[in-house]
Design a protein around this nucleic acid. Sequence first.
DNA 1: CGCCTTTTTGATAGCCGTCAAATTTCGTGG
DNA 2: CCACGAAATTTGACGGCTATCAAAAAGGCG
Lengths: 250, 250
Amino acid sequence: MSSEDFLLTNFNAAQLRSNCATCSLRELCLPVGLNDQEIQILGKVVSQQKKIRRGGYLYRASTNFQALYAVKRGSLKTCILEEDGRQQITGFHMTGDLLGLDAISNESHICDAIALENSELCEIPFSKLEEISRIIPTFMHHFHKIMSREIVRDHSLMLLLGGMKAEERLASFLLNISSRLAIRGYSESSFNLRMTREEIGSYLGLKLETVSRAFSKLQSEAIISVNYKHIEIHDLERLKLKMGNASCTT
Amino acid sequence: MSSEDFLLTNFNAAQLRSNCATCSLRELCLPVGLNDQEIQILGKVVSQQKKIRRGGYLYRASTNFQALYAVKRGSLKTCILEEDGRQQITGFHMTGDLLGLDAISNESHICDAIALENSELCEIPFSKLEEISRIIPTFMHHFHKIMSREIVRDHSLMLLLGGMKAEERLASFLLNISSRLAIRGYSESSFNLRMTREEIGSYLGLKLETVSRAFSKLQSEAIISVNYKHIEIHDLERLKLKMGNASCTT
DNA sequence: CGCCTTTTTGATAGCCGTCAAATTTCGTGG
DNA sequence: CCACGAAATTTGACGGCTATCAAAAAGGCG
């Protein structure tokens, strides 16, 4: 049986649980732009939800790379930690986001992926993803776009880390979270952060005290309200002015 | 004629000039890991050398994306510039490096690519690259690894920008250049930089004066010698100690 | 050969990191 | 359900690193 036949054959009922066709994240996740038949094919290689409790690891650096993961529910952080103890968070990931793209190059993970809250993930074996790519050109092209988008996202963060001041970085961060929540149908102006000040600082290249001070500053200017992890954005326009500019896509 | 037939058919002699099979960069560039026949196929879609004079643009931000480029000779920088004038160099590219991966996501370039010296580039139409990917699974996998490596490279830079001090950043930068030159068969300890202090600063998130001071500091410690653009590394080990650590791959 | 760019070095100011302590929240176990 | 302890957050004071402004010297391109 060729791999193509394999992909076109139905699995048994038990394995059909995670069905991309009926998933509420169709429009955010890997299936974007595929037609119904193509989504069927994709759905067959996506395995059942993997549950990770808050603080648990989805994968660890230096472990073998086998699959990409899509966030079905919850949120995660990915972080690199250096031998000398230096650590940096490279991204916060919410529903529909794809994790593990950095592991393709060495066939082993280079960062840890840790759940910020109890989460569920869909597992996509990478070899199967490449098989589908050969069968469905649309899918291959879309996957290339997703990888490219990750590069663009990283470049935005490099711009932030390379040139912005603390307050600009935080404004940029809040606008990024806000727009991503909006895309997912949540409020863009009222939300709870899932990460600590220290994690935000690690992501933005700042110390946690500086992050806290920047929050206080924005609050004192009546642009936002901060109550521990709960954020209210009162003036989106003025918040945008806080960063000279900067892409808040993704 | 199907696209596959098209790829397997010979072009006329005039278009065969840039032949991957006989290129000295075979082991550094896209053909890595391909067999002879596969390299033949690739060679047929890679068009003749494109020459860019020092200071000239290979492509500009917001222009239409059609092709990836491989550096055949010379070197380039890629930089994003924001509406408010903020600018950041996202990478320096030498022979064998692939440019344009960030443009796939939007089908338009998001950065400028400018030659640091007179350079030659090979052009690979992206649609053709995806066609080859369908025909040669090895090639598709290799291409995915290249994109992933770009993400890993960006994460290294994020780590640098997020946490390192000026001297650590410069040490990291010099070691990166050194190792890349070594891979290409040049001296790892004696070389000429192609970029200005300002460009190095833009890449490292520092002002040009700070870069200059960091050079002077390393020289005063007898770790390197600096004579304008000419650098001699006297003590590679101590230079490595200067950055607490950090990946200097790529 | 001459002008313009690049580089170096100095002085000063401002932002952020560091250390410290108080307050609140959250998780765990009784 | 409540209570306790650990973790997270906020705020203040101070110091260090880097940006900024300025000027001189060296190099490179036409």
